[in-house]
Amino acid sequence: MSNPLFDLTGQVALVTGTSRGLGQYFARALANAGADLILTSRKLETLALFEAEMKALGRCVVSLELDVRDEASIRSMAAEAETAFGQIHILVNNAGCNVRKPAVDVTWDDWNLVLDTNLRGSFFVAQSVARGMIHHGYGRIINIGSVTSVAGYAGLGPYTASRGGIRQLTMSLAADWGKHGITVNCLAPGWFKTAQNRVMYEDEGWVEYLVERIPLKRPGQPNDLDGAIVFLASESSRYVTGQTLLVDGGISTGALRATVSQKEKK
């Protein structure tokens, strides 16, 4: 028998950016916990295979077009989602992008692309969905941040600014909407291999450098996030809001050795 604290049966979860990557893992974990789904992408055809997979689990699934950089698209998506299901219980604000460049090479357009997608887009998606949540007196909003929400990395200036902003935005929205029965939290993954960063993981030297700095001695696997996303979406997190939950193998501890290893002594 399923644990009612983690059972999402009868609830509807909207997950943005589900054409690939972690968005699909988030949606799959929520579906496995019982939730019906609203999937989004800028191009509907990119959702067809994943929609079929989720329906095969016995879930009701609706795919909607969404460009988080376009206000009209956000409002249209939110209205269609409510029409389809009547109520959205869970929002996972996952859609995002990145530009990796030395800070001196970042262009005006690079900055706008990343901040408009990751930060402004997340806010206005949350705002549009929260209107219905306020009406129903219930909601779980999960903003997807990153270990860069709490740490800076060279070559990721716009991205770290956007993810740091997500953490602050999460706290602000939690304070704003808590009285309406809505919790707002930030799930912050560490270093996971995704479609966005797969090129980096092809560099064995960089992977070794990374793993040395992760206390659990490996990059994250997508399923490492399943428990966290279900926890934040479920009744079990009813008294948790405004928080950033890091799932990062411990790299946010600083993970720098203060002693010389036996190997180095030799």
Score class of each variant (00 low, 15 high):
154 A>R: 08
115 L>P: 03
94 N>L: 03
211 V>T: 15
108 W>Q: 14
3 N>Q: 10
227 G>S: 05
156 L>E: 14
61 V>S: 00
86 G>K: 07
81 A>C: 06
184 V>S: 11
87 Q>M: 10
141 I>C: 07
250 G>P: 10
151 A>W: 03
230 V>G: 08
142 I>N: 06
10 G>W: 04
95 A>K: 07
180 H>G: 02
115 L>W: 08
66 L>K: 07
133 M>W: 05
45 E>S: 12
45 E>G: 01
200 M>Q: 14
255 A>C: 11
143 N>G: 08
50 F>G: 00
5 L>C: 02
145 G>I: 01
121 G>K: 05
75 R>Q: 13
44 L>R: 07
30 L>C: 12
37 L>Y: 12
117 T>V: 08
32 N>G: 14
11 Q>N: 11
104 V>R: 15
207 V>G: 03
71 E>C: 00
52 A>E: 14
147 V>W: 07
31 A>S: 14
73 S>Y: 08
259 T>Y: 15
67 D>A: 12
211 V>S: 06
258 A>E: 09
170 T>M: 07
11 Q>V: 00
5 L>M: 13
173 L>R: 00
175 A>T: 13
254 G>D: 06
38 I>R: 02
141 I>R: 02
54 M>Y: 01
259 T>D: 13
177 W>D: 11
102 P>M: 09
246 L>V: 08
213 R>F: 12
114 V>T: 13
252 S>Y: 07
59 R>H: 02
259 T>L: 11
23 G>Q: 12
102 P>I: 11
9 T>S: 15
243 Q>Y: 08
237 S>A: 14
48 A>R: 14
36 D>I: 01
3 N>L: 11
144 I>R: 02
210 L>M: 14
71 E>Y: 13
45 E>F: 05
167 R>P: 00
174 A>W: 09
178 G>H: 00
240 V>Y: 09
168 Q>C: 09
115 L>A: 04
6 F>I: 01
265 K>N: 06
117 T>E: 04
262 Q>E: 10
152 G>I: 11
162 S>P: 06
59 R>G: 01
130 A>N: 08
239 Y>M: 10
246 L>F: 14
20 R>C: 04
4 P>W: 04
181 G>W: 02
28 R>P: 00
240 V>H: 10
209 Y>K: 14
250 G>K: 06
100 R>T: 10
187 L>D: 04
118 N>A: 00
199 V>P: 02
15 V>P: 03
44 L>D: 03
218 R>L: 03
96 G>S: 10
16 T>H: 09
112 N>V: 02
262 Q>Y: 05
184 V>Q: 10
179 K>Q: 11
36 D>L: 00
223 N>D: 12
188 A>K: 00
23 G>Y: 15
16 T>A: 07
12 V>I: 15
194 T>S: 06
39 L>H: 07
115 L>F: 08
67 D>P: 09
240 V>L: 15
183 T>D: 08
